Amino acid sequence: MKVLIAEDEFYNRWVLSKMMASYGNCIETDNGEEAVQTFCWACRKKEPYDLVLLDIMMPALNGFEVLERIRAFEKESGIENLQKTKIVMLTSLEEPEYIDQALNEYGADSYLTKPVQLETLRQVLTDLGFFPQELDMQQEAV
């Protein structure tokens, strides 16, 4: 699995990378603009990401703007529903309107609130159709 982690906090990126290391190759970005560029570049090279873990509150572009641009790029590129990259929004905001906006308005596949727990992340990945290997790390929170 190829994973893009878009998170502006260094420690959160580090923990998410550790959590995802057994699942596959992780690439990290620390702002929204870089996340969009990295995503599009990989798609153009025919090496798309399987999963994007996307923080909502980031510099340059926020997570909603990133998600909107990724989905627009997929549409323009002819990437159909089942071929779309799975995108999980990450945030400390538990407001129902943010969840609804992420999932229904912008097209996120799932939503996790911080601190992200390993078991919760595993469950989301399983729900999205990924079959994770056992991870040999202690449960750390982001």
Rank of each mutant, 00 (worst) to 15 (best):
C26L: 03
M89C: 13
M137F: 03
W14S: 11
D55I: 08
E80T: 14
V66N: 04
R71G: 09
A6C: 08
M57S: 10
L4P: 05
A42R: 14
L82F: 07
M1C: 06
E28H: 11
I87T: 12
P59Y: 06
Y106W: 00
D50N: 15
A108H: 00
T120F: 00
I27Y: 11
E76A: 14
A21N: 11
I27C: 07
I99D: 00
L103E: 02
V36G: 04
K84Y: 05
L135S: 14
T85Q: 03
A60E: 14
A35H: 11
D50W: 06
T85W: 06
I5H: 09
T91A: 12
K84D: 08
V142A: 12
I70Q: 03
T126W: 06
E80Y: 04
W41M: 12
Q139N: 15
Q117T: 00
L67E: 07
Y11M: 15
A108E: 04
D109H: 10
C43T: 04
Y111S: 03
E76R: 10
E134W: 02
V3W: 02
V52R: 05
I99V: 15
F10W: 08
I79H: 04
L16C: 06
K18T: 13
Q117S: 01
P48N: 09
L67A: 07
R44T: 08
E34R: 13
T126P: 00
D30K: 14
L4E: 10
I56H: 09
I70N: 08
R13G: 10
F73E: 05
